[in-house]
């Protein structure tokens, strides 16, 4: 134990010295999951939580995980479900991942529906949280039907988004109106344009195995 601690200390000192020289870079990423809990999507939240879990299972030690929900007024700290950085050692990271599974499962089991769908506010909140992270790669994973519905008291449809350096992934986007595919695709295109206009990059995930690959690059 003492030897391991000394080795760790030595490594930390060496890393600090190398960081000063600019030789050390980070490979960690920060991932922010956003769950839509509005009326149409709340039933899909347990499935979304499972997708989030399989994404977390493939995250590397040292990665950061955050989660919030889309409600009537999403640009708020109150909507944040959790924020956690995985430990840098694999064994501790595995334990932390299991705790995150538990947290998401608990959340999915007890989620309450919201009257409005403030997607833009949720994106702004997620981007704000990610901007404060030192990780080079930043992801926002949106579990939503992407149909925004802003309330009168909290209309964020006009706010300016800054998604520079953020990769937005829309996952598990359910079709609200199966009889109108054009509207669905137009909606996705519209969101893609908004994200790109805000400086971010956009991806759409249709199958569960694509999401971990997109986030973790495995």
């Amino acid at each position: 134990m003492i030897g391991r601690s000394l080795f760790g200390l030595g490594t930390a000192l060496a890393l600090a010295a190398l960081s000063g020289c600019g030789l050390v870079t980070s490979t960690n990423r920060s991932v922010f999951f956003v769950f839509d809990v509005s009326g149409t999507y709340v039933k899909a939240v347990p499935d979304a939580a499972k997708l989030a879990n399989i994404t977390i299972a493939d995250l590397q030690p040292g990665d950061w995980v955050g989660a919030s929900q889309i409600s009537a007024c999403s640009f708020s700290e109150k909507e944040i479900i959790l924020q956690r950085q995985l430990p840098t050692t694999p064994s501790l990271a595995a334990t932390a991942k299991r705790e995150l599974f538990q947290a998401f499962n608990t959340y999915a089991a007890g989620v309450k529906t919201a009257k409005f769908t403030d997607i833009r506010g949720a994106l702004a909140q997620a981007a704000f949280e990610l901007k404060q992270r030192p990780e080079a790669e930043r992801f926002i994973v949106l579990f939503s039907d992407m149909v925004a519905d802003y309330g009168k008291s909290c209309d964020t449809s006009g706010i300016k988004l800054d998604l520079t350096g953020v990769h937005v992934i829309a996952a598990n986007v359910i079709k609200t109106n199966p009889g109108d595919p054009e509207k669905y695709f137009a909606l996705l295109k519209e969101w893609e344009a908004q994200v790109v206009a805000a400086g971010g990059t956009w991806s759409l995930v249709s199958s569960p195995d694509q999401l971990p690959k997109l986030v973790n690059g495995v």
């Binding site: 760790g8 890393l15 980070s26 040292g62 050692t89 694999p90 064994s91 990271a93």
Partner: peptide, 18 residues
């Protein structure tokens, strides 16, 4: 792989994982 348990993961030195 087990070295990550001692030195941790996430950093790269000159493009090589720690």
């Amino acid at each position: 792989r087990p070295m990550s348990e001692i030195v941790g993961e996430g950093a790269r030195i000159g493009g090589i994982g720690l």
